[in-house]
């Protein structure tokens, strides 16, 4: 019996987009200047690579967890992340054990996991709080190529349209192809047909998208997109709203102080392999 599904539809994609767009979680970082958030992330992403001290790494990991909490990421997401990290480490350990690894290996893995984990936590805290537009403004501020920042807003705008087109073409292909009578073991015939139709659908999608891209780029041209790349005033106007406030500096200062603290603590109670 067929039933109606809400997922995998255009509406679903729009829903996902809006969810990211509004980034309604709130939290500390969403109220900060995006440039400072990116700087803050860079600090936390780089620092762990300068030490092999497990105490320090554990401290940085905890710092990451606190940041994620401040960014109001739910405990469920955080839990899933940590769980994933443990599972991954476990696999590597199993493999290492096959090659004759021992407790030394485990500790080395703990070190690696803490490091990668701390970096991931920082990125989670920072980027979950920045909606794509803010992030692209931050990138513009750091003088990243204009194409990237344009890509963000364009993708934002086109994704629902592209998905809708693809869904329609795919659906049409499916209706006009012979139905799969025998699904086969684990439905492999279905999967094969699905893959075949997906690939085939790209033929019309390529041509249709090429046509619409032409209109887009013509219109970009007429509205000064390439002009803005040369002339800096447009950039200044776009970024005029960015303000570094006392809060931004305070967050950065506190973070740096905490990192220093962690390193000091680590020096007092060093734990090496």
């Amino acid at each position: 019996m067929r039933k109606h599904h809400d997922v995998l539809s255009v509406e679903w994609v729009k829903l996902e987009l809006i969810r990211t767009a509004y980034a309604t979680r709130g939290g500390l970082f969403s109220t900060m200047d995006p440039r400072m958030v990116v700087m803050w992330y860079l600090v936390l992403a780089i620092v762990p690579w300068f030490t092999h001290n497990l105490t320090v790494l554990a401290g940085l990991f905890v710092l990451g967890c606190i940041s994620v909490g401040l960014a109001r990421v739910g405990p469920l997401l955080l839990g899933l992340f940590v769980f994933g990290l443990i599972v991954e480490t476990f696999y590597v350990f199993i493999a290492a054990w096959l090659f004759g690894g021992d407790t030394q290996t485990v500790i080395a893995l703990v070190e690696l996991t803490l490091k990668l984990g701390a970096v991931s936590l920082a990125s989670m805290a920072a980027f979950v709080s920045l909606d794509p537009e803010k992030l692209s403004d931050a990138m513009l501020a750091f003088r990243m190529p204009q194409m990237i920042t344009f890509g963000v807003s364009y993708g934002y705008r086109m994704l629902p349209i592209l998905i809708e087109q693809f869904a329609t073409v795919f659906e049409g292909y499916r209706l006009r192809s012979a139905p799969v009578e025998n699904k086969g073991f684990l439905g492999w015939r279905m999967i094969t047909q699905w893959c075949r139709l997906t690939v085939l659908s790209f033929y019309p999608i390529f041509l249709n998208t090429a046509k619409s891209v032409r209109t887009t780029v013509e219109s970009l041209e007429a509205r000064g997109f390439t002009y803005a790349a040369v002339d800096g005033r447009g950039r200044q106007i776009r970024l005029a709203y960015l303000r570094l406030t006392a809060k931004d500096w305070a967050v950065m200062a506190v973070t740096l102080a905490l990192i220093a603290g962690v390193f000091w603590f680590g020096a007092q109670f060093p734990l090496y392999r």
């Binding site: 590597v92 493999a95 290492a96 090659f99 004759g100 690894g101 080395a108 070190e111």
Partner: peptide, 20 residues
Amino acid sequence: WIGVEDAEFVEGLPQSILLL
């Protein structure tokens, strides 16, 4: 290599990473 001190001397680690 950067993340783990003297990674090449950790028993089984390089091989397992390479295997995966």
